[in-house]
């Protein structure tokens, strides 16, 4: 089948970009979307042109590398899938598609469809962990965890950090990503001791990185390839509010002698 692609081409962060039109004649319906771009890139390379840069790695929907906008929707029109697992059979012969990178101040463009999502790593650094040094863990079954809590934590932990929530959000908010980590760790007894500190530091960092705010439109939840729920955002708001209200200064006196 034939597919017409309008792809955002931008050489690097500092140069301006523009849409470039490409026509692909022999698209096989069993190809994945990225395989179709591979074919395009092979053609471009043979013609001596610069291939389209796009992020990808595992191509089985779990690493979170891939992602760009197809006709204004992150990861394209199918729900519950990343773009690497989106297959061409969901498109019609002659379809014209617009491919744009995720757009947000906190996600500067690197090249073409690639953006820099390192802000996510910095948010995790700010508190998205449980402080436990290797070797100091208690016996695993000494911490019973309610099955329900473990399951809900797992639902939140399924986030692959692809950034589609930010891209879809009318406000470029990272709330779904941040709240998924806050909920994952906060729902487990292991995460309880740091729950307040985590909410404070991660939300503060999210603000600092220049993400927008959540207006509860539910857009992120609808396009999340892993079905992470905005219920987590409510939990983040709760945890953060409580953490501010009950905040106490950390002890200044050291404990070592």
């Amino acid at each position: 089948m034939k597919i017409i692609l309008n792809i955002w081409r931008q050489k690097n962060a500092s140069s301006p970009g523009r849409m470039v039109r490409y026509e692909l004649d022999n698209v096989n319906e069993h190809m994945s979307f990225l395989e179709m771009l591979d074919v395009l890139n092979e053609e471009l390379t043979r013609k001596g042109e610069d291939p389209v840069a796009f992020e990808h790695d595992c191509r089985e929907g779990i690493c979170g590398c891939c992602g760009f906008m197809i006709n204004g929707i992150p990861h394209g029109p199918e729900r519950g899938t990343t773009v690497c697992q989106l297959h061409m059979r969901h498109f019609q012969d002659g379809d014209e598609l617009w491919l744009e990178p995720f757009r947000a101040k906190a996600f500067p463009i690197i090249k073409d469809l690639m953006v820099d999502r390192s802000a996510f790593d910095r948010i995790i650094s700010a508190g998205g962990y449980i402080s436990i040094n290797t070797g100091s863990a208690p016996e695993a079954n000494s911490i019973p965890v309610k099955k329900q809590c473990a399951d809900r934590a797992m639902d939140a932990a399924a986030c692959i950090g692809c950034g589609a929530c930010v891209a879809a959000c009318p406000n470029a908010s990272a709330s779904l990503f941040v709240s998924a980590k806050i909920a994952h760790l906060g729902l487990l007894p292991q995460g309880e001791p740091e729950r307040d500190r985590r909410a404070l530091r991660m939300v503060l960092k999210m603000t600092e990185e220049g993400f927008g705010y959540c207006t509860n439109t539910g857009e992120c939840e609808a396009i999340c390839p892993k079905g992470v729920k905005i219920e987590n955002i409510a939990m983040m708001h709760r945890d953060f509010t409580r953490a501010v209200a009950l905040f106490r200064e950390e002890a200044k006196v050291g404990g070592t002698g």
């Binding site: 449980i130 436990i132 695993a140 019973p144 965890v145 473990a150 934590a153």
Partner: peptide, 22 residues
């Protein structure tokens, strides 16, 4: 065996039984 202890303490959401054990 130490790996499992470590990962559980880090908050890895392993599957659980109703009694709360792994």
């Amino acid at each position: 065996v130490n790996i499992i202890d470590q990962c559980v303490a880090q908050g890895v959401p392993f599957a659980r039984e109703y009694g709360g054990t792994l």
